[in-house]
């Protein structure tokens, strides 16, 4: 059962001669519970793919279907509901609110949605991400790894079906990077969530179940060169 189905997806910015084809004719199936790494040089269309799957951006043509829900057919209100309920985002630059504590940052999206956060789950999440004794700290009192872990807790609190991470380790050293990916992977495996991580770091990609390569907007299912014999 594919949780994400991408069919002849294309995104083009601008028109005519100045048009930039960020993504061309992409086809992709992601299984539920899978950890997919998307690699490729900067500006190759990785983030565009992630934004289209996350419902942040609309495609020029083609479709994205998540759990049987065709995103291209949704109006702005439903698309925003999809983003808030089904998707968890993790960004390179954490995007934490500087004046709010760790716990407040984590629960902020639910509060904005007028939902009550699940206390038990929040405590478990903070504990597991090593933030239990940091819940009342402000972001600028945290290390980079801790800030990113806070962002991960925020992305996971509403138990989204898919977690999308755009260069989540771009600002971290390799030790913290591995830790972040391990934590992300452990958490999504626990809840059976699907994880898509954009990275330029082959070491991160080596931790994934599957690797997809994007170059010049063309998506290729990268598979090992199998040398038989």
């Amino acid at each position: 059962m594919s949780i994400i189905e991408v069919r002849s997806l294309a995104k083009c910015y601008g028109q005519g001669e100045t048009a930039v084809h960020a993504l061309r004719d992409a086809e992709l199936d992601v299984q539920e519970g899978e950890f997919v790494a998307v690699i490729g040089p900067s500006g190759s269309g990785k983030s565009t793919l992630l934004h289209l799957i996350g419902g942040v951006d609309r495609p020029s043509s083609g479709t994205v279907t998540v759990r049987g829900l065709n995103l291209t057919g949704l109006n702005e209100k439903k698309l925003s509901l999809y983003r808030r309920r089904q998707v968890g985002f993790v960004f390179q630059f954490y995007n934490l609110v500087p004046v709010l504590t760790v716990a407040e940052n984590v629960t902020l999206p639910l509060m904005l949605d007028n939902l009550k956060p699940d206390k038990v789950w929040l405590d478990e999440l903070l504990e597991r991400l090593g933030l239990a004794d940091r819940r009342d700290s402000l972001p600028n009192q945290l290390s980079g790894g801790q800030q990113q872990r806070t962002a991960i807790a925020r992305a996971l609190l509403h138990r989204p079906a898919i977690v999308l991470a755009d260069e989540p380790t771009g600002n971290l050293d390799s030790r913290n990077s591995r830790e972040i990916i391990s934590l992300l992977r452990d958490a999504v495996r626990h809840l059976g969530q699907t994880l898509i991580v954009i990275t330029h770091d082959p070491a991160i990609a080596s931790q994934a179940d599957r690797v997809i390569l994007i170059e010049d907007g063309y998506l290729t299912e990268q598979s090992a060169v199998r040398t038989g014999g």
């Binding site: 591995r178 626990h190 082959p202 070491a203 931790q207």
Partner: peptide
């Protein structure tokens, strides 16, 4: 988790990451 890193001619590093609290 197991991950690999390294550059041609600079040796390889394999890292096993054990989470203290695994869900």
């Amino acid at each position: 988790d197991l991950s690999a890193a390294g550059m041609p001619g600079q040796g390889a590093v394999f890292t096993a990451t054990f989470l203290r609290q695994s869900a």
